[in-house]
Design a protein around this nucleic acid. Structure first.
Lengths: 342, 342
DNA sequence: GTGAAAGCGCTAACAC
DNA sequence: GTGTTAGCGCTTTCAC
């Protein structure tokens, strides 16, 4: 098992010679074992063990024009927002022998574009993007390549290829109406500046639409820190309380900031929901752990990842042309979760 | 910019012909621009734009025996524990044109081994592992390859190549002594079963050592869920309170479970730190957001990532042999952070 | 500063 | 079920 000279330079030929077969047989033993007789296969596997052979995927990819890598870009890995999706995706892909290549864009569309160029060089067999808003060239570049592409975390009438997600707008609208149903009168929305993030903008739009339906005036609180840190939620509460006529309910753009706000209230002695009701978005583990537990929108984070993996695997098996087939857009829905905070 | 026939099949020759140069000049314009006259370079860049050329890294990697990929394995991406390290690493590498290939092992050493085999196939120029405990073959495989390897999040006298981290044992020992200094008498430690995770075992050992120094009896609480969810912290509090003689302070193996425990106390009306003091480990954003804020050990998560990136970049530039050079082990230290919870 | 030829290690296509 | 041949698209080496 450790005899192989200086490993890392063991080539398929070395294994083949040791097993007394041709290189192609080694290749087949690895990729399509059923094509190789059990006896030979065992000999080959033993030779691989003995030499510590690790296939050079660069060579295989080059020749076959087909890697085993799926490239994904998420806005951030720093908090838990996309964590479930990424793990679900990675698991779903790994079960089919595909390796996930992840990069984060820091919520910047320009960064997304340049990162994508880099990732494409690795010859991925599919690309996963977060959201449906992209730099102009991203769409054309991916379409012209004819690569399977899945856009996640939102829906869209005309995806680059496929989309898997839920309606951020509708989810926010429903949450707003739910808060109104509960009797809250002055419902505010807190999010980062909408031009910074399309999904946040969609949620804001859903809030606005609901408020219009209710015939009430919208009240917007702008978060800093891209609206993804506890601290920005805390600061928002500070701002709120200075207002002459503060809202009696705030719908936060995600659970991370909602949680930060709830903790600030606890610290400041602001009763939740008595004095200020708080709603979040995401139903992360944080929402249940909060005091009080957060009313929020459950979104199918892990399932988005799993479904994305499934679509990719199916597409690779079928080798359909990119923009045909069923399920171009998969709506996994959302669910309003009522807890004590609102 | 979109003329190039069916993109994804644009090769370097196509760009070269369009620019009226040889392929090698295109290659140089991309990789070592200073070797190409400005005039020719501009023509080449224009041709790349026009054709939408994306270099096939598989071919380059194959020929040059040198990719631009660094492979990393972390135990999980599901919570924030390793998030800072991963982002710091990714950022530090990207600044030098290196792409991070991340995979998660689910805290399993066997999974780590098999994932590593997969990743090695991509011909990474360096490998980053979490922790210093690995399956037996991992060490020999990496050493024999002579690849730059960085083990993170712990220290070790004899790393595979380099290690960047802090002493989990010493950090836990110091925190335990700090709790004793504050006057807590019955200090317990809560962590997952130590055989499941080496870093947790080190922290337990540090706790035991401190308790021995103090001449006190150790009291261990075993967490479920690998000790990485809020819920397991909550359940631990439930268990604690059933004891005849519960501890007056609990040192949790990380901030995630400590936070879960603190929230459970809040809910159950257990005064923190009055009735039960709580200490965490990590100083994640959660620690500050908690009520009360958590006394914890600050560990240099992002800096581990940054330093790891720096070591890798330096090693690639210097092409030193693997186990020589300064800084084989970089101790980034830790800091006890005193807040209200203990 | 630029080019021509060779070949990295594997797998597709075709034999047997 | 197994082997032979050719070549994927780059970069290295050496020439100019």
């Amino acid at each position: 098992m450790t005899s192989g000279s200086r490993s890392g330079r063991v080539r398929m030929v070395d294994v083949a010679q040791r097993a007394g077969v041709g290189t192609i047989t080694v290749s087949r033993a690895l990729r399509t074992p059923q094509q190789v007789s059990k006896e030979v296969r065992d000999r080959v596997l033993a030779a691989m063990e003995a030499t510590g052979y690790v296939p050079n995927l660069a060579a295989g990819t080059l020749k076959s024009q087909r890697s085993r890598v799926v490239a994904a870009i998420v806005p951030t890995l720093r908090n838990t927002i996309f964590a479930e999706t990424v793990e679900g995706l990675a698991d779903g892909l790994r079960e089919h022998g595909l390796q996930l290549l992840i990069a984060s864009s820091g919520y910047s569309l320009e960064a997304e574009e340049s990162i994508l160029l880099n990732l494409l060089g690795q010859q991925p067999v599919a690309v996963v993007l977060t959201g449906i808003a992209h730099a102009p060239r991203v769409r054309s570049m991916l379409r012209s390549r004819g690569l399977p592409v899945v856009e996640t975390w939102d829906l869209c009438d005309d995806p680059i290829d496929r989309a898997v997600g839920f309606s951020n707008l509708e989810a926010a609208r429903r949450m707003t109406l739910t808060l109104a149903d509960r009797g809250y009168r002055r419902i505010a929305f807190a999010g980062a500046p909408p031009q910074l993030e399309h999904r946040a903008a969609q949620r804001l739009a859903g809030y606005r639409q609901a408020m219009a339906e209710l015939g009430r005036a919208a009240q917007i609180i702008t978060l800093d820190d891209l609206g993804v840190t506890f601290a920005s939620g805390e600061r928002a509460v500070g701002q709120l309380l200075e207002r002459k006529r503060p809202p009696d309910a705030v719908f936060f753009v995600n659970d991370v900031v909602a949680f930060g706000a709830a903790q600030a209230c606890l610290r400041l002695g602001v009763a939740v929901p008595g004095q200020l009701a708080i709603a979040g978005f995401g139903d992360f583990e944080l929402a249940r752990a909060s005091n009080p537990p957060l009313t929020t929108v459950r979104i199918p984070g892990e399932q988005i990842g799993r479904t994305t993996a499934r679509l990719i695997v199916e597409r690779l098996a079928a080798s359909d042309p990119p923009w045909t087939g069923p399920e171009r857009v998969v709506d996994l829905g959302f669910e309003i979760i009522s807890r004590e905070s609102a």
